[in-house]
């Protein structure tokens, strides 16, 4: 598929060997460091212009941390981040500011991520003020009105407070705020998980429309595999701080290769009773281990039905097994 296209897709974001290790301190008077949480541990991925990279994985595997570190909202302990061709991982705060404008974030919880004491117009307009894009009062008003309309709200709603809105409407406000500064890249961290099923489709469609209209690229983090399948161009699967598989949406769902990806896809029930009645339900045992003390070798080995001797000792590297399809697993000569 990729070979058919005339031009190489253009990289917008390029994250290489990213790691975020949080120190753990002993409780007590002297906060001695007693270890580290390897929340993100050597993650490499690209986001191409106009695409959506989906990111899935179980709770605590490092999805949000990866997103935050990519935007430098938290500092990485290692690796590099290129944005629009430029290494931003070592830029000073001042130099970073104009670039920040081009990279935005939409958060999971539309209830706690909006300041309850601010009017919706000012929540949306805040990034305009921060980046000195507001100009006159009239311009500010016009731009915030426009943003409200883009996300399907009415301009008169700008004078209300967040608590007067439903969950879906609040998520629209969060999206409007992210769009205020004309970004090219938006990280969406579980943007629909807190919403009612009947509202999720409204937001997903809105995000797809905006992507078309403004040529946006998304890193879309979610745990709902059906939502990720729907919205993504490519999908990365994380387990315990690492990407274990990355492929086009089609390859990942039709030909999952890492045993963890396979287990994940088998564990998720499909909304189709006839299909469910026939499906095999192999269920992997155990829970995700702690990133404070991850298993040796491949961190999935204690739960993996295919594990062999080397899996316990050698960490598999992410290797391309097919064009655009990479897997970190010894079964594939990792």
């Amino acid at each position: 598929m990729g070979r058919m296209s005339t031009a190489e897709p253009e990289k917008l974001v390029s994250v290489s060997n990213l790691s975020v290790h949080f120190p753990i301190h002993a409780s007590g008077v002297v906060k001695r460091q007693i270890g580290v949480v390897k929340a993100v541990d050597g993650v490499t991925f690209d986001v191409f212009k106009g695409e959506t990279l989906g990111m899935v994985g179980e709770s605590g595997c490092g999805k949000s941390t990866t997103g935050l570190a990519t935007l430098r909202l938290i500092e990485a302990t290692g690796g590099s981040i290129h944005f629009e061709g430029r290494d931003i991982s070592k830029l000073s705060r001042g130099k970073l500011r104009p670039i920040r404008q081009r990279m935005q974030m939409v958060y999971q919880d539309p209830y706690s991520s909006l300041n309850p004491r601010m009017k919706v117009r000012d929540i949306i307009g805040e990034p305009l003020t921060v980046h000195h894009l507001a100009g006159s009062k009239a311009e500010y008003r016009q731009r915030t009105d426009e943003l409200l309309e883009i996300v399907g709200l009415h301009s008169y709603m700008g004078d209300r407070y967040p608590h007067e809105f439903s969950g879906g409407q609040r998520q629209r406000i969060g999206i409007a705020r992210a769009l205020a500064v004309n970004p090219s890249f938006i990280i969406c961290d579980e943007p629909v998980s807190a919403l009612d099923v009947s509202i999720q489709a409204q937001i997903i469609n809105l995000m797809e429309d905006l992507q078309q209209e403004f040529g946006l690229s998304y890193l879309f983090v979610a745990h709902d595999l059906a939502v990720v399948q729907h919205i993504s161009t490519r999908v990365a699967v994380m387990y315990l701080g690492k990407i274990v598989e990355i492929a086009s949406r089609r390859d990942l769902y039709r030909n999952p290769s890492h045993p963890y990806t396979q287990a994940l896809l088998e564990a998720v029930p499909v909304a189709n009773p006839a299909l469910e009645a026939e499906r095999a339900h192999r269920i992997i045992e155990g829970e995700v281990p702690s990133p404070i003390n991850p298993p040796s070798g491949c961190s999935f080995h204690p739960r993996c039905p295919m594990a062999r001797a080397e899996c316990k000792t050698v960490t598999p590297e992410l290797k391309e097994i097919d064009s655009g399809h990479s897997v970190a697993c010894h079964l594939f000569g990792g």
Partner: peptide, 28 residues
């Protein structure tokens, strides 16, 4: 109509299409 709307508005893991979802308008 609500059940039908619900069924149309969720992406389905067994249907690998890029077709637009059909949301239920409004809010509960």
């Amino acid at each position: 109509p609500y059940t039908i709307g619900l069924m149309n508005s969720i992406p389905k893991l067994d249907q690998d299409t890029k077709e637009k979802l059909i949301p239920i308008p409004g809010a509960p």
